[in-house]
Amino acid sequence: MASTKSKINILDKPLSKGKSEINISTFGLLFCEIVQYCQNRVYTVPELQGKLSDLGYHVGQRMVDLLFVRERNFKRETKLLNMLVFIKSVMWRAVFGKEADKLEHANDDEKTYYLIENETIVNKFISVPKDKGTLNCAAFIAGMIEAVLVGCNFPAKVTAHWHKGTTFMIKFEESVIAREKTAEGR
């Protein structure tokens, strides 16, 4: 504040419509540098995915408010299923320009859901080396999903796996399922 130059507060600026786009190569190369940067600081594949997920979390946290202000007129979702559908359609369309391919509920576990995306944007330019077969850089997007869920008070763990393209496994905490049941009982 001591500076003589007048800084414009970010909240004084109008919020853009968020329709601007940039070349996918630019994003691809930036993401490539991010993966390399993370890779240089870890020893194992799970650690690398953890790092990418942390960065995605940072993005997701900032995306939550933006999405709800723009698309839902400040109203948050309170039902679990509506929340998941919000991520599959609204968030996906805003961020990736299309809906996610599928949303499934695990047969054997009520707190696990799967969100399936055949071709994630981050994996478009990545060929996984043979010795790191399980690495899925969509861990970055998993982090984004997790942040959005946690930000809306649906605490969960989200991980990315190679299955039908990329499958995001969403495991909610027990409390979320319990709350959902009491809400339904009313």
């Binding site: 994003f27 960065l55 940072h58 320009g97 299309k98």
Partner: peptide, 20 residues
């Protein structure tokens, strides 16, 4: 696809760079 597949939302890019 509602958008050009050779393009990506610039806010995703902005926030990703910010995270980095």
């Amino acid at each position: 696809r509602s958008t050009d597949p050779k393009k990506v939302n610039s806010e995703l890019f902005t926030l990703t760079y910010g995270a980095l």
